[in-house]
Design a protein around this nucleic acid. Structure first.
Lengths: 129, 129
DNA sequence: ACGAAAAGCCGATTATCAATCGGTGTAATT
DNA sequence: AATTACACCGATTGATAATCGGCTTTTCGT
């Protein structure tokens, strides 16, 4: 428990790319994001490896090359990391509510619209006023 | 922008203590949490210093000793860190809503109760169904 | 089947940051 | 003035991300 999910800048970039277009392999990832950064194939490779060890990526051997796919969705990762923050800093989940309001309070119109829908749906289940 | 707020284990412990009983100084903090850990006064001192540089603590010189107080509330810090996660992983704030639901879905009764209240309050402002 | 190319794997290096503490200088207290 | 209590500087250790070279292994074209 309480394993902190920490992501570096390149790791995050790799995840982003794979959420957009998975599956992919080291070569393609290097072409897509490594070339522009001037980093080697190997760097991309070991980043994929690290993400796999962290269980954020799945992989499958095709011929002798690994093909990677996200093991968690973007929203899943956000949820996980938000949970970790809340659980680390708050004994109960009290803090979540205030955090939510705070963040939501600065949200844009689009988010507020989405929020309305979510709250409406939520009401049907747990709010019985 | 995008300054990641990262807290180590001892740093978090110090924050917790100060949220419970502020203000305090290095000596008292060492007594309260350092002695039990077998760490030196200096270690506590530099942790306070680091937290001050991160603007998570305020301090004031009383005689020649600093007296520290939280510069952010617990909920404020949670909000900040949740925001950072969401902003880092999500272009818009879409992810927040799903993260919220996900975490809330695993919340205990007490949190759900609080949630009902919050949502009810929120509805008055932005939900117009 | 053989050699080149492609890819994984191992290890080394650098950078950042938290944790840790010693030593030194300065300021307060008696 | 001597003692004590700090703060401040710098050094070390440990963890983790980023980086890459080089060796090994697998595949594939001819």
């Amino acid at each position: 428990m309480s394993e902190r999910t920490r992501l570096g800048e390149l790791e995050l970039c790799v995840m982003e790319r794979l959420w957009e277009s998975a599956p992919s392999n080291a070569k393609a990832m290097h072409l897509a994001i490594g070339k522009a950064r001037g980093i080697s194939h190997n760097t991309v490779q070991s980043t994929l490896e690290r993400l796999f060890r962290k269980k954020l990526l799945d992989r499958e051997k095709v011929s002798h090359a690994y093909v990677y796919s996200p093991a968690v969705s973007r929203d899943g990762l956000i949820s996980r990391m938000v949970s970790e923050v809340v659980e680390t800093l708050s004994n109960s989940n009290e803090g979540l509510v205030s955090a939510f309001l705070d963040v939501a309070g600065r949200a844009d119109e689009k988010t507020l619209d989405e929020l309305k829908r979510v709250i409406a749906r939520y009401r049907e289940n747990i709010v019985d006023d």
